[in-house]
Amino acid sequence: MGKKQVLRQGPISPEFIAGSIAKHQVKTQIGAHDIFLGQVRRDEIDGKLVDRIEYSAYNEMAEDIFHEIREEAFEKFDLVCMHIYHSLGEVKAGEICLFVFASAKHRKAVFEAIEYLVESIKLRVPIFAKEILEDNSFVWKENHYD
């Protein structure tokens, strides 16, 4: 299977997500979709609110790892199709930065696949995030794993 481009400049719009869902109406062997949407949170850090996140990545490695994760998910779960999109550049609080969309004949495969995909992305893909606060100061974000 060829490599799909995952990283995209800017936020992922609700219209893009709706369009992606609509495209699957012709794939009538699918009986279950599951979607994960990551949204930029307006956290409060040292009394200041997060205005936006600026994402950067080691693009070539990130795309390789996204490809590996996709291949693993297709092997582990009985999926019909899967799409992953992640933002680069600025994404404002409240906007979507990650869209993961898994489709299968039945629900169990997509529930399990989405969790596997999202956890793997957070753990393994070299994406970096600068949280820019309302006064334009910033902090580097770091994923935490339970």
């Binding site: 990551g38 994402y55 990545a57 080691y58 990130a62 992640h86 930065c97 990650l98 999202v118 992305i121 957070k122 753990l123 393994r124 893909v125 070299p126 994406i127 970096f128 995030a129 580097w140 974000k141 770091e142 994923n143």
Partner: peptide
């Protein structure tokens, strides 16, 4: 050299 990952 890669700092901590923060995707998602």
């Amino acid at each position: 050299l890669l700092p901590p990952f923060a995707g998602g």
